[in-house]
Design a protein around this nucleic acid. Structure first.
Lengths: 150, 150
DNA sequence: AATAAATGTCAACAAGGCTGACATAAATTT
DNA sequence: AAATTTATGTCAGCCTTGTTGACATTTATT
């Protein structure tokens, strides 16, 4: 059993998400807000349904977090042009700023970890991650343009 | 910004921990119970303080989860021999069985992901994980013997 | 004998998951 | 045109698993 992979995966993720926690708390936000900010920054104009699919949470859970982000001016919703039922999500200038602040420590942690690897290290790690994702969701990774280095 | 690493890390961890969720629910347990089972299986005889340090949660949070595991016969506590204040944690036969059931799908997912990598792939991934962990906790990884393949 | 350490316990609270029910506007189908 | 489906929102209540603070017990250390 690859117990070492399981354990190190746990520790690595624990410290990866922990980076932003102190900063988030100052805004009265939590990890759920961070995840939304990440995806809204990554692909501006994403409809609510896509975000639900990605986060694999219920619309009621998302609604709570999203409302706080909208009310505080970090995210804005625009009616879709082709389908006017959709609410497309965009980070505001303020939202992009917060996301960059939250990402700063995560970025240096990731870059340092990759810099210590052999030449093809980053590609190998990314391929491992893709391999861990449910096959039916791998197309989503492509659509989000997360697999362009592979 | 290594946005791709952040995103793929999220998806990979989401599906990794998701594997056990359905099985856990049948026992009335959650992810917190799984984490405890993992470490107690990995290093039997671990004192409570070490587990608190690893999980980075409060003793009150751990106590609730631990009590359920003990009450249901998955974990047992033995008084430490050298220091009789300690309660050393051991998985029972039942606890080891549940852990193996929970790990089965995770194990195949990990092994498939690694099999698709180049020869040194597993080492590279493990080194990345270690690099993501807080330097002050890397000694703990060694003590848990999670870094033996490196 | 006094203090510190390892653990447990009670109580109250918060974040962020969940379900179920219902509402509205816009698109699609019949 | 009417009926249905889709995308989204909202209200209400529940659960797990985090949190803090206070206090108790047993054992080790000073």
């Amino acid at each position: 059993m690859p117990l070492d992979v399981m354990g190190l995966f746990f520790f690595a993720y624990r410290d990866f998400v922990g980076d932003a926690d102190a900063l988030l708390e100052r805004q009265g936000f939590g990890r759920a807000h961070h995840r939304v900010l990440y995806f809204v920054n990554l692909r501006p104009g994403m409809p609510v349904a896509d975000l639900l699919d990605i986060l694999k949470i219920t619309k009621q859970s998302l609604a709570r977090v999203l409302r706080q982000l909208v009310d505080n001016g970090y995210v804005e919703q625009k009616t879709g042009e082709t389908d006017r039922r959709q609410r497309l999500l965009y980070a505001t200038e303020k939202g992009r700023g917060l996301f960059e602040t939250l990402s700063a420590t995560q970025t240096s942690r990731i870059e340092a970890a990759i810099a210590a690897l052999p030449p093809e290290g980053k590609r190998t790690v990314l391929r491992f991650f893709v391999g861990m994702v449910e096959p039916e969701d791998r197309g989503l990774l492509d659509r989000l343009k997360l697999t362009e280095e592979l």
